[in-house]
Design a protein around this nucleic acid. Sequence first.
DNA 1: TCTGGGGTCCTAGGACCC
DNA 2: TCTGGGGTCCTAGGACCC
Length: 414
Amino acid sequence: MDTATILHADLDAFYASVEQKLDPSLKGKPIAVGGGVVLAASYEAKAFGVHGGMPGRQARALCPGLIFVGGHFDEYQRLGDAAIRILGDFTPLVERISIDEAFADVAGCTHLFGPPAVIAAAIRRRVRDELALPISVGVASTKHLAKIASQVAKPDGLVVVEPGTEVAFLHPLPVELMWGVGPATRARLAERGITTIGELAKSSPAAVARLLGRAAGDRLSALAWNRDPRAIRTRVTAHSAGAQSALGRRRIEARMIRRTLRHLADRVASRLRAKGKAGRTVTVRVRFGDLRSVTHAVTLAQPVAATAILATVAEDLVRAVLRKHSGQRELSLLAIAVSHIEEQPVVQLDLPLGLDDEAHRPGARSGMARLLADRAVDRIRRRFGRGSVGYASVALDAQRSVPDAFRELAERQL
DNA sequence: TCTGGGGTCCTAGGACCC
DNA sequence: TCTGGGGTCCTAGGACCC
Protein backbone atom coordinates (compact mmCIF):
# COMPACT_ATOMS: atom_id res chain seq x y z
CA MET A 1 0.00 0.00 0.00
CA ASP A 2 2.36 2.69 -1.14
CA THR A 3 -0.23 4.97 -2.67
CA ALA A 4 -3.04 6.91 -1.08
CA THR A 5 -5.81 7.10 -3.66
CA ILE A 6 -8.93 6.42 -1.61
CA LEU A 7 -11.11 9.38 -0.74
CA HIS A 8 -13.86 9.52 1.83
CA ALA A 9 -16.16 12.52 1.39
CA ASP A 10 -18.68 13.41 4.05
CA LEU A 11 -21.04 16.39 4.00
CA ASP A 12 -20.94 18.15 7.37
CA ALA A 13 -24.11 18.10 9.52
CA PHE A 14 -25.84 17.62 6.21
CA TYR A 15 -29.53 18.26 6.85
CA ALA A 16 -28.80 21.21 9.11
CA SER A 17 -26.35 22.66 6.59
CA VAL A 18 -28.99 22.46 3.87
CA GLU A 19 -31.42 24.36 6.08
CA GLN A 20 -28.80 27.03 6.74
CA LYS A 21 -28.15 27.28 3.03
CA LEU A 22 -31.87 27.64 2.23
CA ASP A 23 -32.35 30.25 4.95
CA PRO A 24 -29.11 32.15 5.50
CA SER A 25 -30.52 33.81 8.61
CA LEU A 26 -30.03 30.41 10.30
CA LYS A 27 -26.28 30.42 9.69
CA GLY A 28 -24.22 30.27 12.85
CA LYS A 29 -27.28 29.41 14.92
CA PRO A 30 -28.19 26.24 16.79
CA ILE A 31 -30.87 24.52 14.75
CA ALA A 32 -32.59 21.16 14.81
CA VAL A 33 -34.49 19.56 11.95
CA GLY A 34 -37.66 17.91 13.21
CA GLY A 35 -40.04 18.64 16.05
CA GLY A 36 -41.12 15.90 18.41
CA VAL A 37 -37.84 14.20 17.66
CA VAL A 38 -34.57 15.77 16.54
CA LEU A 39 -33.72 14.28 13.15
CA ALA A 40 -30.52 16.28 12.72
CA ALA A 41 -28.68 19.10 14.47
CA SER A 42 -26.30 21.85 13.36
CA TYR A 43 -22.79 22.05 14.82
CA GLU A 44 -23.93 24.97 16.92
CA ALA A 45 -26.65 22.79 18.43
CA LYS A 46 -24.37 19.77 18.81
CA ALA A 47 -22.11 21.94 20.97
CA PHE A 48 -24.95 21.90 23.51
CA GLY A 49 -25.23 18.12 23.38
CA VAL A 50 -28.15 18.03 20.97
CA HIS A 51 -28.08 15.09 18.54
CA GLY A 52 -30.22 13.03 16.21
CA GLY A 53 -32.85 10.83 17.84
CA MET A 54 -33.15 13.05 20.87
CA PRO A 55 -36.66 14.02 22.00
CA GLY A 56 -37.45 17.61 21.08
CA ARG A 57 -38.13 18.71 24.61
CA GLN A 58 -34.88 17.36 25.93
CA ALA A 59 -33.06 19.19 23.14
CA ARG A 60 -34.83 22.42 24.01
CA ALA A 61 -33.86 21.97 27.63
CA LEU A 62 -30.20 21.49 26.73
CA CYS A 63 -30.15 24.37 24.28
CA PRO A 64 -32.64 27.12 25.13
CA GLY A 65 -32.09 29.09 21.90
CA LEU A 66 -32.60 26.03 19.71
CA ILE A 67 -34.47 26.76 16.48
CA PHE A 68 -36.60 23.96 15.07
CA VAL A 69 -37.09 23.75 11.31
CA GLY A 70 -39.49 21.47 9.49
CA GLY A 71 -37.16 19.81 7.02
CA HIS A 72 -36.86 20.06 3.24
CA PHE A 73 -36.53 16.36 2.48
CA ASP A 74 -36.65 16.68 -1.30
CA GLU A 75 -33.78 19.15 -1.11
CA TYR A 76 -31.72 16.74 0.97
CA GLN A 77 -32.13 14.08 -1.65
CA ARG A 78 -31.38 16.45 -4.52
CA LEU A 79 -28.30 18.01 -2.94
CA GLY A 80 -26.97 14.70 -1.66
CA ASP A 81 -27.25 13.28 -5.16
CA ALA A 82 -25.57 16.36 -6.62
CA ALA A 83 -22.62 16.07 -4.26
CA ILE A 84 -22.11 12.40 -5.09
CA ARG A 85 -22.34 13.28 -8.78
CA ILE A 86 -19.40 15.64 -8.35
CA LEU A 87 -17.32 12.71 -7.13
CA GLY A 88 -18.50 10.81 -10.17
CA ASP A 89 -17.12 13.53 -12.44
CA PHE A 90 -13.65 12.41 -11.37
CA THR A 91 -14.01 8.64 -11.27
CA PRO A 92 -16.66 6.00 -11.82
CA LEU A 93 -15.31 4.15 -8.78
CA VAL A 94 -17.67 5.68 -6.26
CA GLU A 95 -19.24 3.78 -3.38
CA ARG A 96 -22.06 5.68 -1.78
CA ILE A 97 -22.74 4.59 1.77
CA SER A 98 -25.52 6.96 2.73
CA ILE A 99 -27.26 10.06 1.49
CA ASP A 100 -24.34 12.30 2.44
CA GLU A 101 -21.26 10.10 2.38
CA ALA A 102 -19.20 8.19 -0.18
CA PHE A 103 -15.85 6.61 -0.96
CA ALA A 104 -14.02 7.10 -4.25
CA ASP A 105 -10.88 5.54 -5.67
CA VAL A 106 -9.03 8.04 -7.85
CA ALA A 107 -6.09 5.77 -8.79
CA GLY A 108 -7.20 5.71 -12.41
CA CYS A 109 -7.68 9.43 -12.93
CA THR A 110 -4.63 11.13 -11.44
CA HIS A 111 -3.17 11.55 -14.91
CA LEU A 112 -6.18 13.70 -15.76
CA PHE A 113 -6.72 15.65 -12.58
CA GLY A 114 -3.51 15.52 -10.58
CA PRO A 115 -2.61 13.83 -7.30
CA PRO A 116 -5.36 12.65 -4.93
CA ALA A 117 -4.89 15.60 -2.60
CA VAL A 118 -5.46 17.98 -5.51
CA ILE A 119 -8.56 16.07 -6.54
CA ALA A 120 -9.87 16.17 -2.98
CA ALA A 121 -9.36 19.92 -2.84
CA ALA A 122 -11.12 20.32 -6.20
CA ILE A 123 -14.09 18.30 -4.96
CA ARG A 124 -14.39 20.41 -1.85
CA ARG A 125 -14.21 23.59 -3.90
CA ARG A 126 -16.88 22.43 -6.32
CA VAL A 127 -19.24 21.38 -3.55
CA ARG A 128 -18.76 24.76 -1.92
CA ASP A 129 -19.12 26.77 -5.15
CA GLU A 130 -21.93 24.83 -6.79
CA LEU A 131 -23.92 23.61 -3.80
CA ALA A 132 -22.87 26.03 -1.06
CA LEU A 133 -22.37 23.17 1.37
CA PRO A 134 -19.45 22.29 3.65
CA ILE A 135 -17.84 18.91 3.07
CA SER A 136 -14.91 17.14 4.69
CA VAL A 137 -12.63 14.79 2.81
CA GLY A 138 -10.08 12.25 3.97
CA VAL A 139 -7.44 10.78 1.65
CA ALA A 140 -5.52 7.62 2.48
CA SER A 141 -4.39 4.24 1.24
CA THR A 142 -7.43 2.35 2.55
CA LYS A 143 -11.12 3.02 2.95
CA HIS A 144 -11.02 2.71 6.67
CA LEU A 145 -8.17 5.15 7.09
CA ALA A 146 -9.74 7.60 4.63
CA LYS A 147 -12.90 7.52 6.72
CA ILE A 148 -10.99 8.22 9.90
CA ALA A 149 -9.16 11.03 8.12
CA SER A 150 -12.41 12.69 7.08
CA GLN A 151 -13.65 12.49 10.67
CA VAL A 152 -10.46 14.16 11.83
CA ALA A 153 -10.88 16.77 9.08
CA LYS A 154 -14.34 17.84 10.24
CA PRO A 155 -15.74 20.37 10.05
CA ASP A 156 -15.16 21.54 6.50
CA GLY A 157 -11.61 20.26 6.22
CA LEU A 158 -9.21 18.05 4.28
CA VAL A 159 -6.79 15.54 5.77
CA VAL A 160 -4.34 13.59 3.65
CA VAL A 161 -2.52 10.65 5.20
CA GLU A 162 0.68 10.32 3.20
CA PRO A 163 1.91 6.83 2.39
CA GLY A 164 4.29 5.64 5.06
CA THR A 165 2.76 7.82 7.77
CA GLU A 166 -0.38 5.76 8.32
CA VAL A 167 0.52 4.06 11.56
CA ALA A 168 1.95 7.25 13.07
CA PHE A 169 -1.31 9.01 12.17
CA LEU A 170 -3.53 6.24 13.47
CA HIS A 171 -1.97 5.20 16.76
CA PRO A 172 -2.51 8.31 18.89
CA LEU A 173 -6.21 8.44 17.97
CA PRO A 174 -8.94 7.11 20.30
CA VAL A 175 -10.27 3.63 19.55
CA GLU A 176 -13.82 4.87 19.06
CA LEU A 177 -12.81 6.51 15.78
CA MET A 178 -12.48 3.02 14.33
CA TRP A 179 -15.38 1.71 12.29
CA GLY A 180 -17.00 -0.95 14.44
CA VAL A 181 -16.08 0.42 17.85
CA GLY A 182 -19.19 1.70 19.58
CA PRO A 183 -19.98 2.31 23.23
CA ALA A 184 -19.95 -1.37 24.25
CA THR A 185 -16.64 -2.22 22.59
CA ARG A 186 -15.03 1.00 23.76
CA ALA A 187 -16.01 0.22 27.34
CA ARG A 188 -14.75 -3.33 27.10
CA LEU A 189 -11.41 -2.17 25.73
CA ALA A 190 -11.15 0.54 28.35
CA GLU A 191 -11.46 -2.09 31.10
CA ARG A 192 -8.24 -3.52 29.74
CA GLY A 193 -6.63 -0.09 29.70
CA ILE A 194 -6.93 0.21 25.93
CA THR A 195 -8.10 3.64 24.83
CA THR A 196 -5.97 4.48 21.79
CA ILE A 197 -5.62 2.69 18.48
CA GLY A 198 -1.91 2.31 19.22
CA GLU A 199 -2.64 0.49 22.47
CA LEU A 200 -4.98 -1.79 20.61
CA ALA A 201 -2.36 -2.42 17.93
CA LYS A 202 0.18 -3.44 20.55
CA SER A 203 -2.15 -5.87 22.30
CA SER A 204 -1.87 -9.46 21.18
CA PRO A 205 -4.47 -10.29 18.52
CA ALA A 206 -5.38 -13.39 20.51
CA ALA A 207 -6.16 -11.32 23.57
CA VAL A 208 -8.25 -8.87 21.54
CA ALA A 209 -10.09 -11.79 19.93
CA ARG A 210 -10.84 -13.27 23.36
CA LEU A 211 -12.20 -9.92 24.46
CA LEU A 212 -14.34 -9.07 21.44
CA GLY A 213 -14.87 -12.34 19.61
CA ARG A 214 -12.90 -13.75 16.76
CA ALA A 215 -14.22 -11.72 13.84
CA ALA A 216 -14.26 -8.35 15.56
CA GLY A 217 -10.88 -8.98 17.15
CA ASP A 218 -9.20 -9.96 13.91
CA ARG A 219 -10.73 -7.05 12.07
CA LEU A 220 -9.77 -4.42 14.62
CA SER A 221 -6.23 -5.76 14.90
CA ALA A 222 -5.91 -5.47 11.13
CA LEU A 223 -7.39 -1.98 11.13
CA ALA A 224 -5.02 -0.82 13.84
CA TRP A 225 -2.09 -1.61 11.55
CA ASN A 226 -3.90 -0.32 8.46
CA ARG A 227 -3.92 -3.80 6.97
CA ASP A 228 -7.48 -3.91 5.78
CA PRO A 229 -7.54 -3.31 2.05
CA ARG A 230 -11.16 -3.34 1.02
CA ALA A 231 -12.22 -2.65 -2.52
CA ILE A 232 -14.62 0.06 -3.56
CA ARG A 233 -17.97 -1.55 -4.34
CA THR A 234 -19.91 0.50 -6.83
CA ARG A 235 -23.11 -1.49 -6.85
CA VAL A 236 -24.31 -2.36 -3.40
CA THR A 237 -27.83 -3.64 -2.94
CA ALA A 238 -29.56 -4.23 0.36
CA HIS A 239 -30.13 -7.76 1.61
CA SER A 240 -33.11 -6.86 3.70
CA ALA A 241 -35.86 -4.28 3.78
CA GLY A 242 -37.75 -3.20 6.82
CA ALA A 243 -39.92 -0.59 8.44
CA GLN A 244 -40.62 0.26 12.03
CA SER A 245 -42.86 2.51 13.99
CA ALA A 246 -42.32 3.84 17.48
CA LEU A 247 -45.57 3.99 19.38
CA GLY A 248 -44.78 5.91 22.51
CA ARG A 249 -46.22 3.68 25.21
CA ARG A 250 -49.49 2.10 24.31
CA ARG A 251 -51.63 -0.50 25.90
CA ILE A 252 -51.48 -3.72 23.95
CA GLU A 253 -54.55 -3.78 21.78
CA ALA A 254 -55.28 -6.01 18.80
CA ARG A 255 -56.81 -3.36 16.58
CA MET A 256 -53.94 -0.97 16.93
CA ILE A 257 -51.42 -3.75 16.30
CA ARG A 258 -53.27 -4.78 13.16
CA ARG A 259 -53.32 -1.28 11.78
CA THR A 260 -49.69 -0.64 12.52
CA LEU A 261 -48.56 -3.90 10.95
CA ARG A 262 -50.68 -3.20 7.85
CA HIS A 263 -48.96 0.10 7.41
CA LEU A 264 -45.48 -1.35 7.92
CA ALA A 265 -46.20 -4.31 5.64
CA ASP A 266 -47.44 -1.91 2.99
CA ARG A 267 -44.26 0.15 3.14
CA VAL A 268 -41.97 -2.87 2.93
CA ALA A 269 -43.92 -4.87 0.36
CA SER A 270 -44.42 -1.95 -2.01
CA ARG A 271 -40.70 -1.28 -1.98
CA LEU A 272 -40.03 -4.91 -2.84
CA ARG A 273 -42.57 -4.90 -5.66
CA ALA A 274 -41.15 -1.69 -7.08
CA LYS A 275 -37.87 -3.53 -7.63
CA GLY A 276 -39.37 -6.83 -8.73
CA LYS A 277 -38.13 -8.52 -5.57
CA ALA A 278 -39.61 -10.70 -2.84
CA GLY A 279 -38.25 -12.18 0.37
CA ARG A 280 -38.55 -15.51 2.16
CA THR A 281 -37.78 -14.57 5.75
CA VAL A 282 -40.08 -12.33 7.73
CA THR A 283 -38.88 -10.93 11.06
CA VAL A 284 -40.91 -8.89 13.49
CA ARG A 285 -39.59 -6.92 16.41
CA VAL A 286 -41.74 -6.07 19.37
CA ARG A 287 -40.52 -3.57 21.91
CA PHE A 288 -42.48 -3.45 25.12
CA GLY A 289 -43.28 -0.57 27.41
CA ASP A 290 -40.17 -1.33 29.46
CA LEU A 291 -38.07 -0.97 26.25
CA ARG A 292 -37.08 -4.61 26.26
CA SER A 293 -37.36 -5.92 22.74
CA VAL A 294 -37.90 -9.33 21.25
CA THR A 295 -37.64 -10.58 17.68
CA HIS A 296 -39.38 -13.48 16.07
CA ALA A 297 -38.78 -14.76 12.56
CA VAL A 298 -40.03 -17.33 10.11
CA THR A 299 -38.68 -18.49 6.80
CA LEU A 300 -41.34 -19.33 4.25
CA ALA A 301 -41.30 -21.81 1.41
CA GLN A 302 -42.29 -19.07 -1.03
CA PRO A 303 -41.00 -15.49 -1.08
CA VAL A 304 -43.54 -12.77 -0.29
CA ALA A 305 -44.12 -9.39 -1.88
CA ALA A 306 -47.87 -9.04 -1.41
CA THR A 307 -48.89 -6.58 1.29
CA ALA A 308 -51.76 -8.64 2.69
CA ILE A 309 -49.70 -11.80 2.99
CA LEU A 310 -46.80 -10.03 4.62
CA ALA A 311 -49.18 -8.37 7.06
CA THR A 312 -50.79 -11.69 7.94
CA VAL A 313 -47.47 -13.44 8.52
CA ALA A 314 -46.31 -10.53 10.66
CA GLU A 315 -49.49 -10.59 12.71
CA ASP A 316 -49.03 -14.28 13.43
CA LEU A 317 -45.47 -13.68 14.56
CA VAL A 318 -46.45 -10.79 16.81
CA ARG A 319 -49.23 -12.85 18.34
CA ALA A 320 -46.72 -15.58 19.14
CA VAL A 321 -44.42 -13.04 20.80
CA LEU A 322 -47.27 -11.65 22.89
CA ARG A 323 -48.31 -15.12 23.99
CA LYS A 324 -44.77 -15.78 25.16
CA HIS A 325 -44.59 -12.46 27.04
CA SER A 326 -48.07 -12.33 28.42
CA GLY A 327 -46.89 -10.38 31.46
CA GLN A 328 -46.24 -7.31 29.31
CA ARG A 329 -48.95 -4.69 29.20
CA GLU A 330 -47.59 -2.03 26.86
CA LEU A 331 -45.91 -1.72 23.46
CA SER A 332 -43.43 0.96 22.44
CA LEU A 333 -42.46 -0.19 18.93
CA LEU A 334 -43.37 -2.60 16.16
CA ALA A 335 -41.13 -3.49 13.22
CA ILE A 336 -41.23 -5.74 10.17
CA ALA A 337 -38.22 -6.79 8.12
CA VAL A 338 -37.99 -9.04 5.09
CA SER A 339 -34.75 -10.79 4.20
CA HIS A 340 -33.54 -13.62 1.95
CA ILE A 341 -34.53 -11.31 -0.85
CA GLU A 342 -34.59 -12.70 -4.35
CA GLU A 343 -35.65 -11.60 -7.79
CA GLN A 344 -39.30 -12.22 -8.41
CA PRO A 345 -39.80 -12.72 -12.10
CA VAL A 346 -42.71 -10.56 -13.19
CA VAL A 347 -45.79 -12.75 -13.05
CA GLN A 348 -47.97 -12.97 -16.08
CA LEU A 349 -50.71 -10.48 -15.49
CA ASP A 350 -53.15 -12.34 -17.69
CA LEU A 351 -52.80 -15.63 -15.87
CA PRO A 352 -56.18 -17.02 -14.77
CA LEU A 353 -56.58 -16.35 -11.06
CA GLY A 354 -57.83 -19.86 -10.34
CA LEU A 355 -54.37 -21.36 -10.87
CA ASP A 356 -53.38 -20.68 -7.31
CA ASP A 357 -54.31 -23.62 -5.05
CA GLU A 358 -55.21 -21.30 -2.25
CA ALA A 359 -57.97 -19.88 -4.42
CA HIS A 360 -59.81 -23.19 -4.35
CA ARG A 361 -60.55 -22.76 -0.71
CA PRO A 362 -63.91 -21.05 -0.41
CA GLY A 363 -63.59 -17.47 0.68
CA ALA A 364 -59.83 -17.34 0.22
CA ARG A 365 -58.22 -14.67 -1.90
CA SER A 366 -55.35 -16.13 -3.82
CA GLY A 367 -51.78 -14.93 -3.56
CA MET A 368 -51.99 -14.07 -7.22
CA ALA A 369 -55.11 -12.00 -6.76
CA ARG A 370 -53.46 -10.18 -3.92
CA LEU A 371 -50.40 -9.38 -5.95
CA LEU A 372 -52.59 -8.10 -8.77
CA ALA A 373 -54.53 -5.89 -6.39
CA ASP A 374 -51.24 -4.58 -4.96
CA ARG A 375 -49.97 -3.81 -8.44
CA ALA A 376 -53.09 -1.80 -9.17
CA VAL A 377 -52.50 0.20 -6.00
CA ASP A 378 -48.85 0.67 -6.96
CA ARG A 379 -49.87 2.06 -10.35
CA ILE A 380 -52.33 4.51 -8.87
CA ARG A 381 -49.73 5.70 -6.41
CA ARG A 382 -47.20 6.21 -9.18
CA ARG A 383 -49.67 8.45 -10.96
CA PHE A 384 -51.31 10.28 -8.11
CA GLY A 385 -48.93 9.98 -5.18
CA ARG A 386 -48.51 7.77 -2.18
CA GLY A 387 -51.32 9.21 -0.14
CA SER A 388 -53.89 8.83 -2.91
CA VAL A 389 -54.82 5.27 -2.04
CA GLY A 390 -54.13 2.87 0.78
CA TYR A 391 -55.64 0.90 3.57
CA ALA A 392 -58.36 3.18 4.84
CA SER A 393 -57.71 2.56 8.52
CA VAL A 394 -54.07 3.33 7.96
CA ALA A 395 -54.45 6.35 5.74
CA LEU A 396 -56.14 8.13 8.62
CA ASP A 397 -53.20 7.50 10.89
CA ALA A 398 -51.37 10.77 10.43
CA GLN A 399 -49.93 11.06 13.90
CA ARG A 400 -46.67 9.27 13.21
CA SER A 401 -43.62 10.85 14.75
CA VAL A 402 -41.42 10.79 11.66
CA PRO A 403 -42.55 11.80 8.19
CA ASP A 404 -42.41 9.16 5.48
CA ALA A 405 -40.27 11.50 3.39
CA PHE A 406 -37.59 11.32 6.05
CA ARG A 407 -37.75 7.55 6.18
CA GLU A 408 -37.27 7.33 2.47
CA LEU A 409 -33.97 9.16 2.68
CA ALA A 410 -32.57 6.30 4.72
CA GLU A 411 -33.78 3.51 2.44
CA ARG A 412 -31.10 1.60 0.63
CA GLN A 413 -31.23 0.37 -2.92
CA LEU A 414 -32.76 -3.09 -3.14
C1' DT B 1 -29.44 8.40 27.87
C1' DC B 2 -33.53 5.12 27.00
C1' DT B 3 -34.71 8.66 22.19
C1' DG B 4 -36.22 7.69 15.66
C1' DG B 5 -35.70 4.78 11.48
C1' DG B 6 -33.18 1.97 7.78
C1' DG B 7 -29.71 -1.00 7.52
C1' DT B 8 -25.18 -4.57 8.29
C1' DC B 9 -22.57 -8.13 10.49
C1' DC B 10 -21.43 -11.48 14.15
C1' DT B 11 -22.29 -15.14 17.64
C1' DA B 12 -24.29 -19.08 19.55
C1' DG B 13 -27.24 -22.92 19.76
C1' DG B 14 -30.25 -26.29 17.58
C1' DA B 15 -31.88 -29.10 13.66
C1' DC B 16 -30.59 -31.85 10.14
C1' DC B 17 -27.61 -34.09 6.68
C1' DC B 18 -23.69 -36.92 5.19
C1' DT C 1 -23.23 -47.34 25.85
C1' DC C 2 -21.80 -42.91 23.71
C1' DT C 3 -18.13 -42.40 20.70
C1' DG C 4 -16.30 -38.56 16.03
C1' DG C 5 -16.41 -34.79 12.37
C1' DG C 6 -17.99 -31.43 8.96
C1' DG C 7 -21.36 -28.63 6.68
C1' DT C 8 -25.64 -25.86 6.06
C1' DC C 9 -29.70 -23.61 7.40
C1' DC C 10 -32.45 -21.37 10.76
C1' DT C 11 -33.54 -18.36 14.80
C1' DA C 12 -32.59 -14.93 18.55
C1' DG C 13 -30.00 -11.44 20.23
C1' DG C 14 -26.45 -7.92 20.30
C1' DA C 15 -23.42 -4.33 18.56
C1' DC C 16 -22.75 -1.10 15.28
C1' DC C 17 -23.32 2.43 11.39
C1' DC C 18 -25.57 6.59 9.21
